[in-house]
């Protein structure tokens, strides 16, 4: 049976805390840019940016990154890739870029995202913010900001639903067979 991990209010609180952590770690919002990884990360990046803007003055640039062309599983994946939009609104040279994703799992998406990002410039720092860290890393990658750590089995699925996609905010765990 699937289990609910976070509800609407949990997600709200978690994002508020992460916004504070991002500001604290970077001592403000100067040179800060959030980049959401398609698809789940984009909505979260926008929400984090508006949370940060509520706390500190000024606008936070939010970019969108599609990592399809940088994946390492073109030949092994069952379903075929669907390319989505990439939009980096500002120069990322010497900026602190916070990559935002919904679920951190093997780390391969983040590896691809870093490769993709570096083709747009040379950020001073790349940090990583994820709503859920479910473990099972296959690469030496860790997140700087984590909404919630959740122990899972490799075959479980973690599904994130967000209002902007027309669903009620929630995170559920679907156990694998």
């Amino acid at each position: 049976m699937s289990k609910q991990l976070l509800d609407y209010n949990d997600i709200k609180r978690v994002l508020r805390r992460m916004a504070h952590e991002i500001i604290e770690k970077n001592k403000g919002t100067e040179n800060l840019c959030l980049v959401g990884i398609q698809k789940g990360g984009v909505i979260l990046a926008r929400r984090l940016a508006s949370q940060i803007e509520l706390i500190e003055s000024g606008r936070i640039a939010v970019g969108i990154l599609d990592i399809t062309f940088y994946r390492d599983d073109l030949n092994t994946k069952e379903e075929q890739p669907v390319v989505k939009r990439t939009e980096i609104p500002c120069t990322i040279n010497n900026k602190t870029v916070v990559l935002v994703d919904d679920v951190l799992f093997t780390g391969r998406s983040i590896r691809a995202a870093m490769d993709a990002l570096i083709d747009f410039g040379r950020p001073a720092y790349i940090q990583l913010a994820v709503l859920i860290d479910r473990g099972h890393r296959e690469l030496p990658i860790r997140a700087d900001y984590v909404g919630k750590n959740i122990p899972t089995s490799f075959n479980d699925r973690v599904e994130v639903f967000l209002e902007e996609d027309g669903k009620k905010d929630k995170v559920i765990l679907v156990p694998g067979l």
Binding site: F69, Y70, R71, L74, D115, D119, F120
Partner: peptide, 8 residues
């Protein structure tokens, strides 16, 4: 883009 090459 400036870098017009991707790795797939």
């Amino acid at each position: 883009r400036d870098i017009k090459k991707v790795p797939p």
